[in-house]
Write a protein that binds this DNA or RNA. Structure first.
Lengths: 245, 245
DNA sequence: ACCTGAACACCGTTCAAGT
DNA sequence: ACCTGAACACCGTTCAAGT
C-alpha cells in the first residue's frame, strides 16, 4: 500500500510483509510480481533476488500464516485437559484466519506442506497422546479435524471469496425462485430465519457452525477414548477402527 | 485427446465432454482455451460461441461433476434409515471423486454455487428431517459434513495435487530429518507403519480416514437426535445449539 | 551484490473480417 | 450462424546489461 521505505534495502522479510499487507487489503488476485514490486517502489525483477519466483512468494505467505498460528497457540495459557487444550488451540487459530480471510483459499490450494506445520501438528498429537489416545486414533483425529485444526471450516463453495462483492439479495432471490424445486432447503431457510433469537450474520453464522462441528468431533473422540473397553488407550495397535467400516 | 470428429458441429456438450476428458488425463493446469480448442480440432476463439469464457467453462465442469453425484445417488437403491441413506449417498459421491481426482480442487476453488447442488442438498435435508431431525440441526449437519457430503475429505495440503509426481521417499526422508523436532509425529508414523496387518496405500489410507470421520459425525448426530430430552426432534426452533457453546 | 530495461513465452479475450 | 486470423492486455520469467 505505502510506497515509503525507498531507502531500506529490499529483503525477503520486507517483500513478504508487503505481500501480506497487499493481500489483506485487496485479496489474492491482486498479488502479482509486478504489483508487489510497485508497492515496494522497485522493479518486478528485483524480487527474484530475494524470492524464488511466484511459487516461492506464495510459500512464504503460507509460512507466515502458519507461523502466526503457532504464535497464537503459544500466547494463550495452556488449558486443562486435552479437549479444552485443542479447543482453545483451534479457536485461536481461527482468529488468525479472521485476520487473513485469504488464508483458507491459499492454504487449500498449495501442494507443498510448510515445515512449520509439522511442529504444530506435533503439539496437537502430543496433547492427544497425553490425554490417553493411541497414535492411531490421534492420526485419524488429525484427518478428521482437517481444516478445523487450522482455524477454518472448509466451505466447499464460498460465495464472495473470489470477488469481494457478494450480492446476498440476488442469492436469496435465486433460492426463492427454486422454492418449489427444493422444498426442504426452503423450509430450512425459513425455519432458521424465523428464529431470530440469536444474532447472526446472514442466515449462517460461521462461528457457531465452526464450534458446532468442532464439538461434535471432540465429543466423538472423547467417547472413543473413554468408551467401553479401553484398547485405544496408549499406543497399542488395534485391529479394527472406529465406527462401522 | 482425440482429434477426430472434425465434422460434428461444435457444441457446449462436446466442448464440456472434451474438457472433462482432457482434465481426467492431464490435470486442471492442462486446461487452457487454446489447448481445449486444439483437442476439438478448432480455433480457440470458436469456443466463445458456446461457452461464456474460461470461467463459464469451469462452471460447466463443476456442473458436470455435481450432475454425476446426483446420478450416482439416484442409481443406488434407497437404504434403510437416515444414517445408512446418508452414508451410502456420500460414499457413492466419493466414487465420482475417485473418477475425477481434479474435482475436489476445482470444487473448493469456485465461488459460485452450481444450481444442481441445491437439489442434492435438498435430498440430504429431506433424509435428515425424515429421520427426525430439526431443520436447525440439519442445517448445522450440512456444514459439519462439509466436503464429505460431496465425497471427499478436504485435505488442507495435498502433496502431489499440483504435479502428479509426488516423491514419497523424499517426503519420508524430510520427515525423518525432523524426527527430533517432532517426536510425536515421528512416533505416530512409526506406530502406524509397524501395524502392517491391514493393507494401506502409503501410511494414510484415505478411504479409511473418510469413513472414520464420516462415522464420527454420523454417530454424533445420531446421539443429538435420540439423546436425553428430544427437543431436536421435528422442526421446532430450539434456542441453544449442541456442544459447549 | 543488487537492481534494471527489454524481450520471450505464455495466458484469456476483443474485434473486424470471412463464409 | 458459426468460425477465424491478428491483435491487445495482461501474466511469470530469462537474460544481458548496468551500477
Amino acid at each position: 500500500m505505502s510506497e515509503q521505505n525507498h531507502r531500506l534495502p529490499l529483503s525477503r522479510e520486507r517483500a513478504l510483509a508487503a505481500a501480506v499487507a497487499l493481500v489483506d487489503a485487496e485479496g489474492l488476485q491482486a498479488l502479482t510480481m509486478r504489483r508487489l514490486a510497485a508497492e515496494l517502489g522497485v522493479e518486478a525483477m528485483s524480487l527474484y533476488h530475494h524470492l524464488p519466483g511466484k511459487e516461492g512468494l506464495l510459500d512464504g505467505l503460507v509460512e507466515t500464516v502458519v507461523g502466526e498460528i503457532g504464535a497464537a497457540a503459544g500466547r494463550t495459557a495452556a488449558a486443562g485437559d486435552w479437549r479444552a487444550a485443542l479447543r482453545q488451540r483451534f479457536l485461536s487459530a481461527r482468529e488468525v484466519m479472521l485476520r487473513h480471510p485469504w488464508a483458507p483459499t491459499l492454504l487449500t490450494s498449495r501442494s507443498t506442506i510448510p515445515a512449520g506445520l509439522f511442529a504444530y501438528y506435533d503439539a496437537v498429537v502430543a496433547t492427544m497422546v497425553g490425554g490417553g489416545f493411541s497414535y492411531r486414533i490421534a492420526h485419524r483425529a488429525l484427518h478428521a479435524f482437517g481444516s478445523l485444526a487450522l482455524g477454518f471450516a472448509q466451505e466447499v463453495f464460498r460465495p464472495g471469496a473470489a470477488d469481494a462483492s457478494f450480492d446476498a439479495d440476488a442469492a436469496e432471490a435465486e433460492l426463492a425462485a427454486m422454492a418449489q424445486a427444493v422444498p426442504h432447503l426452503t423450509a430450512m431457510m425459513v425455519a432458521e430465519a424465523h428464529d431470530a433469537a440469536d444474532p447472526t450474520l446472514g442466515w449462517c453464522d460461521s462461528q457457531v457452525e465452526f464450534e458446532f462441528t468442532l464439538d461434535l468431533l471432540l465429543d466423538g473422540l472423547d467417547r472413543l477414548r473413554g468408551g467401553g473397553e479401553s484398547p485405544w488407550v496408549q499406543h497399542g495397535a488395534v485391529p479394527g477402527g472406529a465406527g462401522s467400516p
